[in-house]
């Protein structure tokens, strides 16, 4: 099951009345940007400044990506993204849970307890 469907199902269960796709897109954008922000915070001020400069004035795409990779590793990004996602999704669920009726809480709990483990991708 993909990430989008999980959120979509949650929004369906809670009977979200707004634009579900927009909410999901914003949610995922937020996760990615928060992850990047967290990673930038881990850099020393000098590296951070250099990286921001690179992002501001990209020479070409390949060079840009190569340079970025010298500052931030894929592995760090993955770890941080997973951590940010876990934290933020948990926070979201805790926020909406009290607004739900017992039946909806039960339904949401049932759904979340049956989530399949994600499959590794290459």
């Amino acid at each position: 099951m993909d990430e989008r469907k999980i959120l979509l199902q949650v929004l369906t269960i809670i009977e979200y009345q707004g634009d579900k796709n927009a909410f999901i897109a914003t949610f995922f954008t937020f996760l990615y940007l928060q992850t990047i922000e967290d990673l930038l915070d881990t850099l020393d001020p000098e590296s951070r400044k250099e990286l921001e400069q690179i992002i501001r004035n990209p020479s070409d795409e390949h060079a840009l990506l190569s340079e970025i990779n010298t500052y931030l590793s894929h592995e760090d990004f993955d770890k941080r993204l997973e951590h940010v996602t876990t934290t933020q999704f948990a926070d979201y669920l805790e926020t909406i849970y009290p607004t739900l009726s017992p039946q909806k809480q039960e339904q949401l709990t049932m759904y979340l307890s049956t989530l399949p483990k994600p499959q590794q991708t290459i």
Partner: peptide, 17 residues
Amino acid sequence: AYTPVAWGLYGAGVAAA
């Protein structure tokens, strides 16, 4: 590297459940 999002949702979902 999109899988971390899935794992994050999964982890939080299971914990919330």
